[in-house]
């Protein structure tokens, strides 16, 4: 049990480190890779926390699809990216070295001020209710319909925003 806890905590530290690297790194493409790495580490933690299905989604959609979107957005917008912008970006990024320090201090403070919570396990429920598939398909139809609608909105957005405007 202790080993498990240590491994999980180590994974979380790695994930935080990956997130910090994502923010402080100068090249945009590296930031996108850092984000994918953070996502992948989160996937492992999610799997270890007993959520395999959500972990699969996180891996395929967040680490995969969103990285693809970011990389294509970066390549589409970097054609004309001037040196001046890169110059300023690196200047700004010097300030980013402050971030790891901030995170460590915040982490220590939060660790010291622990506020305990009595965990309630909702064990009175039946196994069928607990299964994620049955929850999604049997009791949360409204969310499913909402997801269909939001995907439709995304499709309209892609058609509208990614297309060059006809005039002006």
């Amino acid at each position: 049990m202790i080993d498990d806890l240590v491994v999980n905590a180590a994974l979380c530290m790695l994930m935080t480190a990956a997130a910090i690297w994502t923010v402080v790194t100068v090249r945009l493409l590296r930031a996108a890779i850092g984000l994918a790495l953070t996502s992948a580490l989160l996937t492992i933690v999610m799997y270890r926390f007993g959520s395999p299905l959500a972990a699969a989604f996180e891996l395929s959609v967040c680490a995969g699809l969103i990285s693809v979107i970011f990389v294509s957005a970066i390549t589409l917008t970097s054609r004309l990216s001037s040196d001046r912008l890169n110059q300023r970006e690196s200047e700004v990024l010097r300030r980013f070295w402050f971030l790891p320090l901030l995170v460590i201090i915040a982490g220590v403070i939060l660790y010291k001020t622990s506020i305990p919570i009595e965990i309630i396990a909702f064990e009175g429920k039946t196994a069928a209710q607990d299964d994620v598939r049955s929850i999604i398909w049997n009791t949360r139809h409204l969310d499913l319909i909402g997801q269909i609608a939001i995907l439709l909105a995304g499709a309209i957005g892609v058609v509208l925003l990614f297309k060059e405007r006809k005039h002006g």
Partner: peptide, 20 residues
């Protein structure tokens, strides 16, 4: 809380919305 069913379905919903 041991309520992984609801948490997972919530997380999946969140991921779908997030990507859009």
């Amino acid at each position: 809380t041991g309520n992984t069913g609801l948490a997972q379905s919530f997380a999946i919903t969140l991921i779908v919305v997030e990507v859009v």
